[in-house]
Amino acid sequence: MTTVLETLDKGTAYLTKKGIEDARRNMQMLVAHQLSCTRMDLYLRFDQPLDEGDLVPLRDLLKRRGDGVPIQHLLGIVQFHNRDFKTDSRALIPRPETEELAEWLLKNAKLPAGARILDMGCGSGILGLTLAAENPEARVTLADLSPEALSLTKENAQRLDITNVDFVESDLFSALGDTRFDLIVANLPYVPEVDRPTLSREVQHDPDLALFGGPDGLDVIRRFVPEAAKRLLPGGWLALEIGIDQAAQTEALLETAGLTDLLTLKDLSGIARFPTARRSAV
């Protein structure tokens, strides 16, 4: 009978042959998922035999991962700021970089009691729901053009018991009335259309609507920034996530919109990833 260690070794070899990066870690995650344990638990279970009840579904997961289905879709969850969020093909797979933005905002954007927060293009809701959970007195609006993405956001809010939120299906600000906010965050489509052929198999499972932002990737951001600036309360914050080599153009948009205190934060890879700015307090 095949043991856990033998399964890990064979699966790792298969994923490596299929060109999957970090094949060992991927295989560990699949086996841990099937056995309902943690990756660390596997080290204590190397000699445990696996019966067909575990091996059959594991073989299916392994084949799908080898075919390029994202590990997050196979597991059904992704951890973000110490919470497990449901993730699937309805929305963009949450990226580790976005967690860096959430942590910076929680530390540096000092919000008033009862703050109003908007997560524009919320996708699975990881950013807005995290801000809502960490600011329970705030009211957070989660908006997206995609009804499928909003349905996933609602499921995440329910499973995490986050209630200080509202959901709006909207093409940017079209359905948001005249509400103004203390903080607006946005992870909008920013991939240039020309980059489509170069995307990994995993990224190609994300919805086109969440990925592509026109010829240079900035079409949606150009529409968004001027209107977002008008929707900020005095002293309010605007924070975005952008792609590689888009910082200078985005900063110019923020400055033209009359915002101040411009600062573009780098992610852990050193890429200028998160432009932030504020509306003057006077």
Rank of each mutant, 00 (worst) to 15 (best):
E137H: 12
N135D: 06
I126A: 14
L131F: 08
G121K: 10
N135V: 00
R116C: 01
L118D: 10
C122D: 00
L129F: 00
G123M: 06
A143W: 13
A109F: 04
T130I: 00
M120S: 11
L142K: 05
S124E: 04
P112H: 03
S124N: 06
E134S: 08
A143K: 13
I117C: 01
A113R: 13
A102M: 12
A109L: 07
T130Y: 03
I117P: 02
A113D: 13
K107F: 01
G128Y: 02
A102Y: 11
T130Q: 07
T141Y: 14
G121H: 03
L131Q: 08
L142C: 12
A102D: 07
L131H: 09
I126K: 05
K110V: 02
G121I: 03
E100W: 09
G123C: 05
L129R: 09
G123D: 09
L105A: 14
L127P: 04
E103V: 10
A133K: 11
E134M: 11
C122W: 03
P112S: 06
A102G: 13
L131D: 08
A102C: 15
A115M: 09
L142G: 05
G121M: 05
E100K: 08
T98D: 12
E103Q: 15
L142D: 00
T130N: 11
T98P: 14
W104P: 02
R139H: 15
A143Q: 10
K107D: 11
G123V: 00
G121E: 08
T130R: 10
T98A: 12
L142S: 06
N108Q: 11
G123I: 00
G125Q: 04
A113W: 06
L129H: 09
D119N: 01
V140E: 02
I126F: 03
L105S: 12
G128M: 02
W104K: 04
P136F: 11
N135K: 15
G114P: 08
R116F: 09
W104G: 00
A133P: 01
E137P: 10
